[in-house]
């Protein structure tokens, strides 16, 4: 048995092919006069209605103390929590018992930019940053060592605050 389909009884002006086509043509023509919404990227990195969000998680940055040393105490939490296993940390200790990283490398290729390292860091040393223009000419340049992480200058990402979930 054939399936009977209920056909809606609509007015002619609602189903009219020609009027809909003309309406569409008028609409697209009206868009000719509207300003473009394109952001001219390499020249412009933000516009009036768009900028990089505060919580953007991009290239890492290691913060330093007044003496210019990395704040990291090599506690080992960030390589522990890192889901992509991209942080390589070899801890060291000086004569006074201060722990510091002998080797601290982040492979930005492996990194999934989850930001857990920043969340877990007890010293607020490692951060993800508001930065994304990190193209390089060779793959090995994507492994950032401690010196390079400390030399980054871009603003760091702010953590999500549960009491202000929408960031207002």
């Amino acid at each position: 048995m054939a399936i009977s389909v209920k056909v809606m009884q609509r007015k002619n002006q609602e189903i009219s092919y020609l009027r809909a086509a003309l309406k569409g043509m008028a609409l697209t023509f009206s868009h000719l006069k509207r300003p473009s919404v394109t952001m001219q990227y390499p020249e412009e990195t933000k516009t009036e209605d768009w900028k990089l969000p505060e919580r953007w998680r991009g290239t890492h940055r290691m913060l330093t103390d007044e003496q210019g040393r990395a704040k990291c105490v090599a506690c080992g939490l960030c390589p522990q929590i890192c889901p992509a296993n991209c942080i390589k940390l070899v801890p060291g200790e000086d004569e006074e018992g201060h722990r510091y990283p002998l080797v601290y490398e982040i492979d930005e290729f492996r990194c999934v930019f989850c930001g857990y390292c920043q969340e877990v860091c007890p010293e607020e040393a490692i951060h993800v940053g508001q930065h994304y223009e990190n193209a390089e000419y060779s793959r090995d340049r994507f492994v950032y060592d401690l010196e390079r992480l400390c030399a980054q200058t871009h603003p760091v990402s702010t953590l999500w605050d549960p009491s202000d979930a929408r960031g207002e």
Binding site: V5, K6, V7, N12, I15, S16, Y17, L18, R19
Partner: peptide
């Protein structure tokens, strides 16, 4: 011509095959 086209008699999809259910 345009009223024929407009009323969907030629290209009106399912409109010209009204089935009473």
């Amino acid at each position: 011509l345009f009223s024929i086209l407009d009323r969907g008699k030629v290209l009106g999809g399912s409109q010209h095959k009204r089935v009473k259910v």
